[in-house]
Amino acid sequence: MKITVLSGKGGTGKTTVATNLALSLTNVQFLDADVEEPNSYIFIRPDFGEEYQQVLRKVPIIDQNKCRACRSCVDFCEYNALVLLGEEVLIIKEMCHSCGGCKYICPKEAIREEDKEVGKIRVDKSVAGMEFWQGELNIGEASAVPVIEALNQKVSEDKTVIIDAPPGTTCPTIAAISDANYCILVTEPTPFGLHDLKMAVEVVKELGKPCGIIINRSEEDADKLIEDYASNEGISILTKIPFKREIASLYSQGTPFVEEMPEWKENFQEVFTKIKQVVG
């Protein structure tokens, strides 16, 4: 069972839900796929040690002896990652999208590929009763997708996998949803929350994944905004986390609120039961 936790917008409580849900269940594998700003470690407190796995992508290198400065590769590259300076082709690696095209275009077979690190994957195999994986994108790298795809490779089929997805609705989020059996959409009862929830729903529907909503910072009067939308769309509301200073304050110090409010573990277990009923 793979559950991805996402939100159309940052700061709605996606990490709060993912970490507290994970701490309430057993036999969990947690993947922090919010690789631009991985924050789940603050709540789970893993010890990664010194070791990490590199995530690599291919970038071209040019054999200057074979290159005839014909410019075919420069003209071909849609990303402007290649420049011809006199007789020499200069490669701007940050611009390269690793399409591999220049290698095939070169009439002199002067282009080979080498590996470049885009990010890192770290793991603590046993922390707070779970297996915790974290992906990190290197600063200056444009695309988080290869790091998330590398994390997806780590999925254990016999565990309950919880994936903390990057916020938004672009390719990295889609990469974190693509293998999921179920998506939890986290929102808050404000016009911002609703607006961004609609975007997230659109993505999840396009990918054909079953989903449910968790309302964070829930308040009786305000929740109607989300509830009306959810019932119109036929999406169930899995639970509501109240707008309480105590919860906000625990979050601020990096304490998962289920540790201080253990009754909430049952609540998250019920959420999981509901999800199992849908996924089967």
Binding site: F76, E78, Y79, H97, C99, G100, G101, Y104, I105, C171, I174
Partner: peptide
Amino acid sequence: IRCEGCGLCVA
């Protein structure tokens, strides 16, 4: 969604 517009297939 997956296409990054590199143009290799076109070429």
